[in-house]
Write a protein that binds this DNA or RNA. Structure first.
Lengths: 232, 232
DNA sequence: GTTATTTGCGTCTCTTGGACACAATACACA
DNA sequence: TGTGTATTGTGTCCAAGAGACGCAAATAAC
């Protein structure tokens, strides 16, 4: 019945939104905290990539045994969920008066966050339960959009569009050298060899010399905002 | 040196773009083909989800031993790459005269493809070597954009924007019941309980009754296209 | 002090991807 | 026609990684 492709457990929401109030309990003092565990996981992800975030590695970093972690986190999926929401953080309180400027700032801020922790892109890309921090971003985005005469549903859609673009660009930028090599070595030769089948694509790739990552970011944001302006 | 987070092997490109010409060889006749293996994997993914695509399951479906597959596919990552490109297929040759109509049709066609095989969204979402089919979509998209006075690099960016949106919407639609439950049961109560912290978001979610998936799709496409029109 | 809990964690199991060796097969060449 | 050789199918083994289970130590409540 349960689809194993769906990420996060039912318990993720409890961890993300649950009350931190934990009364005095009976047994031994807990040696760790959820925060410490998530911090350790975040460090590993920042340093060695998300694939190195294993229960074992996290436990090692804390000087604990692997199974000790399960007293604080139900499972790997829930750890991912908390890592993601923690890394999102709260959006900066920057409100330029113009809605265009505000939305642009919002998108760029999200992009910066994602650049600081490249792995958030991967986590955010899979289905997950949003936590308070992620909702905080939506709240800020809706505030930036508040002056626009759009249906509420459309505002949410617009934010999803912008955030999707920002995160997508952040991924590209994050493994730039990797992507560079990927395209240059793996795609390019084959594409050029088949230039007769894909003349436009070959030309386009040849013209755009894997240049300005920033340009693509701004281009997308500007286009979406222009589209919103044209519609409202 | 090699980043294990990077998907696909170096061999993926060879499988995707390599010449199919295999001369007469010496040993026993091959019992299988790459195509048959990929087909089996595709079927499993369609029926039971991407997580059920394991070498073991694919082999079982073909009546082969697991290790036999490795004679045809270097590894799991390469299988993913070929599955992805195969599922993309070639875009339909539909050219409405208007560039707006053509681009819209292109986006909708991509959305439909993704709906037919929901797992392509997940595969396309991770870094991978593009194959001929994927490049074919770019070629068709560039053709639709050919009349617009945009830099080649910008055209590629525009297509990435549109395809990202289409695939993102396809994912939502694919596990609709799942997402429905995710939001309704897991997010909604907590969001409403914290409505004081997130008034706009709570209101927006309450207003948009998880309705029209198609609306969000069209909204995004229209906004992007409007933005392109405003810019060109 | 006794008892009910709760923590830390050692041990075991299951699932996946993959390396490696070996026997069977079928063409090349003499 | 026989021999060599490359290639295929596959059995066996191994390493990760997630997690179930149970037990001993710690500690608050009575």
């Amino acid at each position: 019945m349960t689809n194993p492709d769906a990420a996060s457990g039912a318990d993720a929401a409890a961890l993300l939104w649950g009350a931190p109030g934990a009364a005095v309990k009976r047994g031994p003092k807990p040696r760790f905290t959820l925060e410490a565990i998530v911090d350790a996981a975040r460090q590993i992800a920042d340093e060695d990539g998300l694939s190195q975030v294993t229960m074992q590695n996290v436990a090692d970093r804390l000087g604990a045994a692997k199974m000790a972690l399960y007293r604080y986190v139900p499972g790997r999926a829930e750890l991912d969920a908390v890592m993601l929401d923690t890394a999102f953080g709260s959006p900066d309180e920057l409100n330029a008066g113009d809605w265009r400027a505000a939305l642009t700032a919002w998108s760029l801020a999200l992009y910066d966050r994602a650049l600081q922790h490249p792995w958030v892109v991967e986590l955010a890309g899979r289905p997950h339960t949003p936590g308070p921090a992620e909702i905080g971003w939506y709240e800020a985005g809706l505030e930036a959009l508040s002056s626009l005469p759009l249906a509420e549903a459309d505002k949410l859609d617009a934010l999803a569009l912008l955030s999707g673009h920002a995160l997508s660009m952040a991924r590209r930028a994050a493994d730039a050298e990797n992507t560079e090599e990927l395209l240059a070595v793996r795609l390019y030769p084959h594409l050029m060899a088949n230039a007769h089948r894909f003349p436009r694509t070959a030309a386009a790739f040849a013209a755009s010399s894997s240049g300005d990552r920033d340009h693509a970011l701004r281009f997308g944001i500007d286009r979406i905002i222009d589209g919103l302006a044209a519609h409202a």
